[in-house]
């Protein structure tokens, strides 16, 4: 048994990583190109002007604002529901427990288009007009699983005897929650919340069905992808989106690093 990797394995592994990262880096170059009519490579020149142009675009700001609002509210709802669900499933055995964990996974195990079209036909039947809340309804549903996964993993590691000890020593449920349970699961919740935020901020497939005429940032980008009109602005927006999603992911990673279940392994 070799303790050193063979050359072929090394090349395949590093080549795979490059395959994953070079395309994203490419966008960073395109954000500075002076060419605005085509996707010409290599760029004929470099400029900062598109950042200014993008900054002065009200439609981009509006889409960004809607995306941030939706992501914040969906994350909050998912945090509450996901944590409750994880607490129930982690602490006890009961009939239907397996079914519940399957139900939580289902919104991401089934293709997003199913969630999307289901919600849209339900809105139709119930005569609910499209609004920010219809978007949030969809987003919160598939964000629950992210929080649930992180919280459930942490609950499994938190020993139940800690809670029993706290109650035996006379603490109420609120005190136990506040001083024993919360400190134990706080970082897992924070990490789960960050991931849920990133997931919602970026979601497009379900959103196209639940947004009506409203534009979130991903929907703005999708229109540009289908009918490119303002390539330079799209390049800049794409680069900013990459940076905005990287921050919560890195934060989630550092928050849970060193535990046996690092946040972000599954999406």
């Amino acid at each position: 048994m070799n303790s050193k990797a063979s050359l072929g394995l090394k090349i395949a592994a590093i080549g795979g990583l490059l395959f994953l990262h070079l395309p994203i880096l490419l966008i960073f170059v395109y954000a500075f190109t002076t060419e605005d009519k085509s996707y010409q490579w290599p760029p004929p020149g470099l400029t900062f002007q598109w950042f200014e142009v993008t900054w002065n675009r009200p439609d981009v700001w509006q889409a960004l604002g809607l995306s941030l609002r939706v992501a914040c509210v969906s994350t909050l709802i998912a945090l509450v529901l996901g944590t409750l669900c994880a607490a129930a499933v982690a602490r006890s055995r009961f009939f239907g427990r397996e079914a519940i964990s399957l139900l939580v996974i289902l919104p991401i195990a089934l293709p997003g288009i199913i969630t999307g079209i289901s919600l849209r036909s339900a809105f139709n039947i119930a005569d609910i007009p499209f609004s920010t809340w219809t978007i949030i309804l969809g987003h919160a549903t598939f964000c629950i699983v992210v929080v649930y996964n992180n919280a459930a993993a942490r609950f499994r590691r938190t020993s139940a005897s800690l809670i029993e000890a706290s109650m035996d020593l006379g603490a109420t449920y609120w005190q136990t929650l506040r001083f024993v349970i919360m400190p134990n699961i706080a970082t897992a919740l924070l990490a789960g919340g960050m991931l849920a935020f990133a997931l919602s901020f970026d979601e497009v497939i379900v959103t196209t069905f639940t947004a009506g005429q409203q534009q979130t940032l991903p929907i703005w980008m999708l229109e540009e992808l289908v009918r490119p009109r303002q390539r330079p602005v799209t390049n800049v927006v794409a680069m900013v989106v990459v940076l905005v999603t990287f921050l919560p992911i890195l934060a989630a990673y550092y928050l849970t690093r060193g535990t046996d279940t690092v946040a972000g392994q599954g999406k």
């Binding site: 966008i27 997931l199 991903p218 794409a238 990459v242 999603t245």
Partner: peptide, 16 residues
Amino acid sequence: GAMLPLWSSYLVKVYS
């Protein structure tokens, strides 16, 4: 290296 692309924007990846 595997996690950042997993979470980075789907549309941006398609766009690239």
